[in-house]
Each structure stands twice: as C-alpha cells, then as structure tokens.
Amino acid sequence: MKNNKLSILLRGIIAENPVLILILGTCPTLAVTGNVTSALSMGLAATVVLICSNVVISALRKVIPDTVRVPCYIVIIAAFVTAVQMLLQAFLPSIYEMLGVYLALIVVNCVILGRAEMFARKNTVLDSAFDGLGMGLGFILALFLMAFIREVFGAGSFMGIELGFMQMFKIPVLAAAPGGFLVYGILIAIMNKLTEKKGGVKKKSFSCEGCPSASVCTAKTCLNNEQKEEVENA
C-alpha cells in the first residue's frame, strides 16, 4: 500500500512529468521561467491549487454528475486559484506582482484540469492528494530546471543575484521568449532520450485518453468533423 502511494508520488516527478512528458501547462512554463524566483513561486502556487483541487474533486467524485463535471471542476479550480491570488496579494505582494496575469491563468492550466480528469475523479482522496503532490513537484522541478538554465546562462544571474563570472559568457536569447522554446525543446529531447533507454515510457496518458475531453469524444465524430471541414474548405 505504502509502495503504491510512493509510486503515485514518483510517477508525477519523472515518468509522467506533466511538463516534460505529458507536455501540459506549456504556457506558464514558457512565460515564467525567465528567472528562478518566479518559476518557483509559480510552481508552488500551481502545486497548492493542484493538491487542493485534486482532494476536493476526488472527495466529490461520487456527487458530481458526469454531464456537468467539467464546469464543476473549473469552478472548484477557479475558487482555489482566486483564493491563492487573494492571499498572495495580501501577504506576498511582490510575488503577486511578479507572476502577474499568469497567476490567474492557473485556472486553465492543463496540468490541473488534466489531473482532475485523468486521476482525481477515479481515485481516492489520499491517492489524489499524492498524485497532486507528485505532479506538483514534477511541475516545480521542470520549471526550476528551465528557469535555472535560462536565468544562469541567459541572464547571468541566479534568483536575481548577479553572477559575476557568467557576465562574460551569457547568451541573452535564452532569457528572451525564443530561448524559452529552445530550452523547452532541448529538455524534452533529453527526457525522451533518457526514457527511451529504459525501454520507453508507456505514453498511456499522452494518447487520446489523456485528453480532458476523451470520455465525451468519439474518434469517429472527430474524423467526421475533420472530413466535413476538408470538404467545406475544398
């Protein structure tokens, strides 16, 4: 049993890392990884929301009818995000200023909605909490890694403290938006290479099943719609 919990926790950190394997939450990842401080704050804020929403959604999983579950999830997630937002604004205003609009955008962070859909609605409260914690740690880790590379090698500083010896060798583009994509791509490539050697990750969650709309989506209609569009465009 304990082993099971540990594996849920660890899965989120490496094997199913939301950012580097599941490719979820890309927008905040690219936006806030310009420096380590904002990346860590963003990671922490998202983790808090993720754990709380996972717990509440899991607790209510028998109450919430299937047909309205996505609106319900969004309301719950939005509530936690708003709460975090208000608390940060009141008690840590500098972090609130730094994260800006991306804080509010946690509501639509795919990691959170994705975990609600993929995990919390099918598992117990405790398991969901561990899943949230694992995914959150994975999110923080990925963000930290990206921000570390971008800030140290791009801006020649670490958590806002200037590193003297890096000033000569810094690559400013890494700190800019294109550098975000570049670092992200390279990290995903490295992650793929590493997991490949172990026999590859079963990308179960990465396929259609990982899509929040998977349960209401029939591939057939998708195809039909595509075909329809093709016909219309032609």
Binding site: L60, V63, I64, P65, T67, V68, P71, C72, V75, I76, A78, A79, T82, A83, M86, L87, Q89, A90, F91
Partner: peptide, 26 residues
C-alpha cells in the same frame, strides 16, 4: 446536475467571500 453545480458555486462563493473579508482590508 443543475443542483450540484449550483451548490458548488454557492459554496465556492461563500468561501471566497470569507477569504476576501480577511485579505480585502490588507
């Protein structure tokens, strides 16, 4: 479904207004 969603919304509104009462003045 309507009832559940409404209840969740109301509960959320209540909780958020409580938090706002604390953080608002700050």
């Amino acid at each position: 479904p309507t009832l559940v969603l409404s209840c969740i919304c109301m509960a959320v509104a209540l909780i958020l207004s409580a938090i706002n009462m604390i953080t608002g003045p700050i």
